[in-house]
């Protein structure tokens, strides 16, 4: 009986390998580093290429107890949300590969505050860190520059680095040995353009993760999904400006959705709140794993478990 030849793609490109965090040997203080990227094929098609590293799971920790988080989330974490150091430790215990420290928007933000908060979190965990500002370009600059100085040598991922503030963030990353999270609003071309602009400032692309902007399930998830598939295809086809590992934030986006956030006034057909909410985050994340995410920032410990199980399953070969 003639055998059917299974078609294999011969890709010429490879996703860049990027290492987050630095141990003492590399001039940092992290207990371990995390390397992502390096894929030479589409997600988890082990039969035609290498997937050298599983995607990393980052757990989001905020500088103070979030005012706008769903009770489902706050209950899951308990008291640690009062203290970023304790929270970071709990995140590590919950199975994070990386901790994301996010500054929320409040009146106490200052350069000094940013340095201190970073310091306590660095001291509390040995995991590599991603540090995000509150998401307002100018304020982000004001916080991330001192963060970059304070964390010199730690190979932090600084975010978000956008079209309008990339010069400042990239300069800070260049000066103090960090990485940047290059975020564009769900567009293949814009993502590529930002990578080019950053690379033109001479930040090595080994220090850039790209962030195509995440849409939650039901709220534009599929746009990000397709943009990621296109970026990954372009990367594998050899387009050097799309070969960055991709960071996504399904935790933040999914928990912003009404489906995850609230119980009040929702249709009965939506089912059990906690079940639905965790599913919302998990399914958003898992779709993005399928489309090539390399770093996933999650919020709920149960989602972390489930996404971890999925990643383990996809990596077992």
């Amino acid at each position: 009986m003639p055998t059917i030849e299974v078609p294999k793609e011969k890709w010429s490109g490879k996703v860049r390998e990027i290492t987050l965090g630095a141990t003492a040997a590399d001039g940092g203080t992290r207990a371990k580093t995390v390397t992502v990227g390096g894929e030479t094929t589409l997600p988890y098609l082990h039969f035609e290429g290498d997937i050298p590293h599983p995607p990393a799971i980052a757990i989001e920790v905020q500088d103070r107890k979030p005012a706008d988080w769903s009770p489902v989330l706050l209950e899951a974490w308990g008291d640690v949300t009062e203290d970023p150091a304790a929270w970071a430790k709990a995140a590590e215990e919950a199975g994070a590969d990386v901790v994301m420290l996010r500054f929320s928007l409040h009146d106490d933000l200052s350069a000094e505050y940013a340095r201190e908060t970073l310091r306590v979190v660095l001291d509390a965990t040995g995991l590599p860190l991603i540090v995000f500002g509150p998401g307002q370009a100018e304020l982000d600059n004001d916080l991330l520059v001192p963060v970059a100085e304070e964390g010199k040598g730690e190979k932090l991922v600084l975010g978000v680095c956008e079209d309008k503030n990339y010069r400042t963030i990239v300069a800070a990353a260049l000066a103090h040995g960090h990485l940047v999270d290059a975020r564009c609003p769900m567009d293949v071309n814009l993502s590529k353009q930002l990578n080019i602009l950053i690379s033109d400032m001479n930040l090595p692309l080994e220090r850039v993760v790209m962030d195509p902007t995440t849409g939650a399930l039901g709220y534009g998830m599929e746009y990000g999904y397709s943009v990621m598939e296109r970026l990954r295809l372009a990367a594998l086809q050899g387009d050097g400006m799309t070969q960055q590992p991709m960071l996504v934030t399904p935790g933040e986006e999914a928990w912003r959705a009404k489906e995850a956030r609230t119980e009040e006034g929702v249709p009965e057909a939506w089912g059990d709140w906690a079940e639905r909410a965790v599913n919302w985050e998990t399914l958003t994340a898992s779709a993005l794993v399928e489309s090539g995410a390399d770093i996933l920032v999650l919020r709920h410990p149960e989602s972390v478990k489930r996404v971890r199980a999925m990643i383990d399953a996809l990596m077992s070969n």
């Binding site: 489906e259 089912g271 079940e275 639905r276 599913n279 779709a287 399928e290």
Partner: peptide, 29 residues
């Protein structure tokens, strides 16, 4: 496993059979 069902939806199944019926899982799928 809703995550596996999700994968099948995205990656090429024409029919996806899941065990159990629970709106909190069916709705997101």
């Amino acid at each position: 496993d809703p995550v596996l069902a999700g994968q099948h939806i995205a990656k090429y199944a024409g029919f996806v059979v899941v065990d159990g019926f629970s709106p909190g899982t069916v709705y997101p799928l």
